[in-house]
Simulated scan of single mutants.
Amino acid sequence: MSAATPTGRLAELGLTLPPVAAPLASYVPAVRSGQFVFTSGQLPTVGGELLRTGKVGADVTPEDAKDLARVAALNALAAVDSVVGLDNVARIVKVVGFVSSAPGFGGQPGVVNGASELLGEVFGESGRHARSAVGVSDLPIDSPVEVELQVEVRS
């Protein structure tokens, strides 16, 4: 695998795609529609276990939440890979990041940067994307963050 491919860049970063996270309800991790793949929201799980729980700005620091968003984005890439293969991604189109926020916490963009920065490292210029960073009162299983992707594929 060449370092010029997303898979190669992941290897250079010392990262491997995890197994696709099992859905928590009645949905699939990712769906292809035409030239696009849409992921379901992905949580920061490793080996099926949520890394942290709680609200950002109270139970979880913004810096830790940024790291968790990176893990959630890696899980989203695994979902994309399961549908089309990561090296078939032409570009990351949009990222939506949800941050379970303590009252008064307004640093959602900095938290979701964890996902955006990973995508930039893996895809270079093709990893630049539109984005929403949304503060919410709660997320599934008390996760601090959730990330979903919309990607364009080559063929």
Rank of each mutant, 00 (worst) to 15 (best):
V99R: 12
V46E: 09
R9P: 03
G120C: 01
F36V: 05
L68C: 08
V95Y: 13
K66P: 01
G34M: 11
D138T: 12
G107E: 14
Q150G: 00
A78S: 14
S33F: 00
A58M: 03
P23A: 06
P44C: 06
L77W: 08
G48N: 13
V60L: 01
Q35A: 15
N75M: 07
T7E: 13
T53R: 04
L50I: 05
V95D: 09
V95E: 15
S101G: 14
P144N: 09
L68V: 07
G127L: 02
R128I: 06
A69K: 13
T39N: 09
V31L: 13
D64W: 04
R131H: 13
A78T: 03
D81S: 05
L74H: 05
P19C: 00
L50T: 00
E63L: 11
T16I: 00
V46C: 00
T7P: 05
G106Y: 03
L51P: 02
P29M: 06
S101C: 15
G41D: 12
S116H: 04
E121D: 14
T61D: 01
R91M: 06
M1V: 13
T5I: 05
V151G: 02
V95N: 12
A11F: 04
V80D: 02
V145M: 06
Y27S: 10
A4Q: 11
T5C: 01
D142E: 13
F36M: 07
S33M: 07
R128M: 06
V136N: 12
E63M: 05
V83I: 14
V134Q: 08
A102K: 07
P18Y: 07
Q35Y: 10
P140K: 03
V83E: 07
D59E: 15
L17I: 08
T45G: 02
V20H: 11
L118F: 12
L50D: 03
T53M: 01
D138N: 07
V136Q: 11
V153G: 09
F38Q: 11
L13Y: 03
P23L: 06
F123Q: 11
P29G: 04
A4I: 03
K66N: 09
A22T: 14
A78L: 06
G47T: 10
P140W: 05
Q108C: 12
V89L: 09
A65N: 03
S101M: 08
Q42V: 03
A65V: 03
Q35F: 08
S26Y: 02
L17W: 05
K55C: 04
L15M: 12
F105S: 01
S2W: 03
L13S: 10
S155W: 07
V112S: 15
A73T: 07
S26I: 00
G34R: 04
T53H: 00
L149S: 08
V89Q: 13
A78Q: 04
V83T: 10
T7G: 13
V99M: 10
R91W: 00
